[in-house]
Amino acid sequence: MTLTPEIIAILMLDGLFLFFSSIAFVLSLKLYWSWDSEATTLLQYRLEKESYLVGLIIKYIFMLKVPLFLFFIYTCDTLSGIITGAMCAAGVVNSVDFGLFLLLFKLLNLYLFGFWLLLHVRDVESELQPYVRQKSLFFGIAFFFFVAEIVLEILFFTSLNISKIVSCCGTLFSASTQSSLSFLFLMENWMIVSLFYASFILMLVGFMVKNGAVYLFSNLLFLFFAIVSLILFFSTYVYELPTHHCPFCLLQSDYYGVGYFLYAALFLGTFYGICGVVIATLTKGFILRAMRFSLFFNSLYVVMVSAYVVVYFLKNGVWL
């Protein structure tokens, strides 16, 4: 176990989050069991006030989780200087078996909390607060994911061993058969890239015809193919190296931290695309706005990654 100020900060905030989210969890369960907007009892009156606290706590956690996610990646990046063999966050994250799960949980929780907040905004717009029970139940479930994330994070930092030799991203994301992601490399590059653009075109079509289902489906596809194509194809153009397929090195300052912008655009775009549409169909409203947001960020992402390829081709006259 190594303690650096960064890790202390993350663990301390985890402790705070756990404390506050447990309060929100208990209140959510209470709200779910006994919420009755028709009732005029003292209990209902109290519950209405407690639902405020739940909203407050979740807003607080979400506001901090977003920068903390980036900070976590940054911490892993700095730790890669200490851990033997690691050259970027990929090696550090993979130095424990569940590192990848931790990262997935973190992303999933960002989506879940964001979803909750969108639902909350819809809920408090109406004086009747029609979705209190739904959102309480939703948080009741999301809480377990959140706790899992925190537990994994604490385990992750306590089991980091600086003398253990880990693989660097060059071997983790290589085409050799031993690497964990080798199955991805079975697909041809042109196939993945055309699927990526195809899903984007499908999204455009979904936006034109204002069809929520098509749009939602295309966003899910887009998220998946964007990440796969980033690892397989686009990252090589950022690094200008045909053999380097790492989604984490993008975040380093050698590449001007372009990864932070790429991932922000991708996750914001797909978040609005997926959650926005789901909420809109659940509560009937503001679908167009969510779609516009989503399309803007997704297009931004597509333009950014394509620009790398085009600029490389213009500069060097060849494809990688």
Binding site: A9, L13, L16, L56, P67
Partner: peptide, 19 residues
């Protein structure tokens, strides 16, 4: 990053305690 670290170590604790 040091400033970000400083911010994360101080401001959330305070806001959390007044919440």
């Amino acid at each position: 990053p040091m400033i970000v670290l400083l911010f994360l170590l101080s401001v959330p604790v305070y806001i959390g305690s007044v919440m």
